[in-house]
């Protein structure tokens, strides 16, 4: 019996040692893979996922890196990430500044996806949220500088909904209007046409991943005017009328501006108003 148990004890020791060695080696490899995968979850901002892509955490679990979406994209805008790129190897993306999404109505890339990493419940390309356009640089945007560039507004496939031009007075000239391109997140699909078309050397409007581009109000915030509309009337009873603390003899009405009841004060905002105002103040005895 002893002769039989002795070698088996040695074999057991050997087995345990081998097992420990393997477990350690493989564990180290696993740690490396895990950390690498964790890093890759932070998608670089210039890489935009195809339409219908699940949020990044789900996407890296569902995408099997087959490239079917790349093949079925009729405009060849999609790439599969190479190992050296700082994202999950083999996953699809596009760079808006190079080639933006053409927003095909039949969404062939989503149809091609065998796993649902591109969500098959997306039927209307206008509902896709690949990212969100952000006018990142107010200093270089030509419209902000007072020009009528308007290119981002014109090329937008969801024109007048995703990007509107909101007039503001040009404080620099004092007599012109700035047409500020304003992105509306509920309509912007993140296709990137605006970024591609932006004529500045480096795009002033860029499509960013939603998690970077979108702010969020705290959940306890209530917008008074929205609540008022919802309730069909003021939530504060009785509604306090706002009073402007104006100099005697002057009135201000929202939307109409200053006016003097006696007619002695010229209507604002004329250039003469600042001169007239001190005169009126003298009588107010503040």
């Amino acid at each position: 019996m002893d002769n039989e148990t002795k070698p088996s004890a040695a074999a057991r020791r050997q087995f345990l040692a081998d097992t420990a060695r393997m477990a350690c080696g493989v564990g180290l490899l696993g740690l490396g893979v895990g950390l690498y995968a964790q890093h890759a979850k932070a998608l670089p901002p210039a890489a935009i996922r195809p339409p219908g892509a699940l949020p990044e955490a789900g996407f890296s679990a569902a995408c099997i890196r087959c490239g079917m979406c790349v093949r079925d994209c009729p405009f060849d805008i999609l790439h599969l990430a190479k190992p050296e790129e700082p994202m999950s190897t083999g996953t699809p993306y596009f760079v808006a500044r190079q080639l933006p999404c053409e927003m095909c109505e039949d969404i062939p890339c989503v149809k091609a996806c065998p796993t649902g990493a591109l969500d098959h419940s997306l039927k209307d390309i206008n509902k896709s949220k690949m990212g969100l356009a952000v006018l990142v640089d107010h200093e270089t945007c030509l419209n902000f500088l007072g020009l009528r560039c308007d290119i981002c507004y014109r090329v937008c496939p969801v024109i007048d909904k995703a990007i509107t031009l909101d007039p503001q007075s040009n404080a620099r000239t004092g007599k012109h209007t700035l047409f500020i391109p304003t992105v509306h997140s509920d309509h912007c699909t993140g296709c990137g046409k605006c970024e591609k078309a932006c004529p500045t050397e480096v795009a002033s409007i860029k499509v960013l991943p939603l998690y970077m581009a979108k702010g969020q109000l705290s959940s306890h915030y209530r917008l008074g005017w929205v609540e008022k509309e919802k309730a069909g009337g003021s939530l504060v009873a009785p509604e306090v009328e706002h009073k402007y603390n104006m100099p005697e003899g002057m009135q201000y009405e929202h939307g109409k501006g200053l006016s003097g009841s006696s007619g002695a004060v010229p209507p604002a905002p004329t250039p003469a108003a600042p001169v007239a105002l001190p005169k009126a103040l003298q009588g107010s005895k503040l």
Partner: peptide, 18 residues
Amino acid sequence: GMTLVAAAVSGSIAWEMI
């Protein structure tokens, strides 16, 4: 086994990275 554990823990197909 490690690749399956890595997938479960990282919530991604981690092995496909390399």
